[in-house]
Design a protein around this nucleic acid. Structure first.
Lengths: 103, 103
DNA sequence: TGAAGCCATCAAGATTTGTTGATCGGAGGA
DNA sequence: TCCTCCGATCAACAAATCTTGATGGCTTCA
């Protein structure tokens, strides 16, 4: 099963309003970085930082095309997060999220 | 709809392996703090810090009984997070997570 | 009362993040 | 080639978070 490290890094990627806004913008499909800077009202380097955070967590992926870079959601990973989150609400007997620590 | 601030704080609460372990332990039902320190292998003050983080995010609730304090998952909040996360995977036309910023 | 157990809180330091402005490399167009 | 645009990266600083050890409040029991 997924390690807690992966899960926590993924949740961390969502633990920021700016990144939630980025994801919100990508819900309709992939978008070019140049189309994000303006609407999100942030400097390019800062946007780049948050995009990298999301990408490192596997939540988005990029695609280069000429001078431009397009980002899109990684629905597989978001679905996996849904599964993880769902597991947190069910008794451990059914589905275990993290290996037991000291027992 | 839920503000991004609430959502990001909730995700932040899950963005830590220690806290995921705590939640994992609470999946089977409420538990006393004294039963968590040992198995999780952490100092009492540190455990208290993480429990507070989870509680502030609304993910767990506490109940005092004599000398002891019992913590339990707040399934309502976890369900709300599931809904939020689900919304992230769907086009904005259907369900909007964060109000548009600059348009 | 007094002692002991359970837990929250505090101050202080260490570590991680977030933010800014500057720079660099790659792609295209003149 | 030179110039411009797009975007990543870097250094440096600011701010938030994590961790530890010590302390204090509250409850129970003798």
């Amino acid at each position: 099963m997924k390690t807690g490290e992966t899960a926590s890094r993924r949740f961390h990627a969502l633990a920021d309003e700016t990144r939630l806004k980025i994801i919100d913008r990508l819900r309709d499909g992939e978008d070019c970085v140049c189309n994000l800077t303006g609407p999100l009202g942030m400097r390019q380097s800062l946007l780049s930082f948050h995009l990298r955070t999301l990408k490192d967590a596997g939540i988005i992926r990029d695609r280069k095309e000429g001078r431009w870079v397009y980002y899109a959601l990684n629905l597989d990973v978001l679905d996996a997060m849904l599964t993880t989150l769902e597991a947190l609400t069910k008794p451990r007997k059914e589905l275990r999220l993290v290996a037991p620590h000291c027992e």
